[in-house]
Design a protein around this nucleic acid. Structure first.
Lengths: 226, 226
DNA sequence: CGCTGACAGTATCCGGCGATACAGCGCCGA
DNA sequence: TCGGCGCTGTATCGCCGGATACTGTCAGCG
């Protein structure tokens, strides 16, 4: 199951999908976005979902108080917006290209015809939405706790599973994350992120190498049961 | 879009699905569970998902520290376990029948054949998983905040949208919920739930009638944007 | 070479939630 | 009728995260 990724991305998908997508060019329209442009907006319904070809797309929820919660940063070979397109309800999140980005736009209403010919495509989509559901549930599991260490560790562990590489001290997370980004993704304040990371380094849970996080193996298996 | 429900359930689905399910009897196996019996267990992979015919199924996540987080209580005409069956990964949650329950067991591996004949069934499943994803994301949005009022209000508002009935003072939530259950679903302590509900009653956000919660209209539209 | 801005680290203070303990209350069954 | 139990309401206390403000550091760039 080879995967692709981007340094700042927080999500990746099996290449299997990317190859399948290429068979479906007749269904899609290519679109390009400049850095800062919005792909879809929170609160608006949509019939399309998007496959990121290149670039980086930030998925976030804006709370009523204006606080932005970053759900994911989707790199190449990932899809987004599918939940909105399938559920037929206003989007719960918005997507903004944080750098020049090219996407393929799929229209959900064309899917029934497609499924007749390619039932395996339906299974792939089901698998993808189920994976997202799973990750959201696991994030929720950590979020109910107000302990910042759990919140941060959940994020880093997940990224470690997705992008991790072997390292003498454990699992190295190959995603560049500022403390502020971690704060936006975990819902704790930036100051607390700094404090927490320090604590974790002192307790041996975490290790820093060249600006990358390394998670000690003793803590990395934490999510395997879920 | 008619729906059915149970007094203690926290989820419901369009009847459209129930009628569709009846066409698929040849694919399924009926199973019954006594109160307290487990339908599937957290941590174990599974190829099956379940359609609840009658009874009540509690979906929860057990954290490493033993704390139980209740995700939903699924009543009749709902499905559960589909994310695990589709993703092919260990289940992030466990399902326990809290009263005598009958379910239909679907096997995910038979789906491709089914989709070829009934592509619309794939769309329905996609819609259901997308709805769950949406609800999880919205719950996450509230969970990042540590304010108990937001957490509790998110739950009640959602139940109000699903089960709400007109009431002089606003939207009445027709789901029986103990403070303890709210605590297990929102991740705040039982004591804080009591405190918070009192505050909300005093501020006019919430109203109590015959043991049911009534949400003032001014606060009920809060989630409409998401 | 120094300016600037983004990011990381740290201190102080306050508010509020969790833990714990206990009292009131209503329902149900012996 | 009484006792037990599950649920709600409330008090006390300790702890810790958010807000705020400030400093230090490094990179990029004129």
């Amino acid at each position: 199951m080879k995967m692709t990724g981007k340094p700042e991305a927080t999500w990746r998908m099996p290449n299997q999908l990317a190859s399948m997508i290429s068979e479906l060019r007749h269904l899609v329209r290519e679109k390009t976005f400049r850095a800062g442009e919005q792909i879809y907006a929170q609160g608006e319904p949509s019939n399309s979902f998007y496959f990121v070809v290149s670039g980086l797309v930030q998925i976030s929820i804006f709370r009523i108080d204006g606080v932005e919660i970053v759900l994911e940063k989707m790199g190449p070979d990932t899809i987004c917006g599918e939940a909105t397109a399938f559920a037929g309800l206003p989007s719960f999140s918005s997507a903004v290209a944080t750098e020049p980005t090219t996407v393929l736009e799929f229209e959900a209403r064309r899917l029934p015809d497609l499924f007749r010919e390619h039932p395996e495509f339906a299974l792939i989509l089901l698998r993808l939405t189920s994976l997202k559901q799973r990750v959201l549930a696991l994030r929720l599991e950590q979020m109910v706790s107000n302990k910042p260490e759990e919140r941060v560790l959940e994020l880093l562990t997940r990224l470690g599973e997705m992008f991790g590489t072997r390292h003498a001290k454990g699992n190295m997370v190959r995603t560049r994350l500022t403390h502020e980004m971690i704060a936006a993704m975990t819902g704790v304040s930036r100051v607390t992120v700094t404090r927490t990371l320090k604590r974790m380094r002192e307790s041996g849970t975490l290790y820093l190498d060249d600006g990358y996080f390394v998670i000690s193996p003793a803590h990395a298996e934490r999510l395997d049961v879920g």
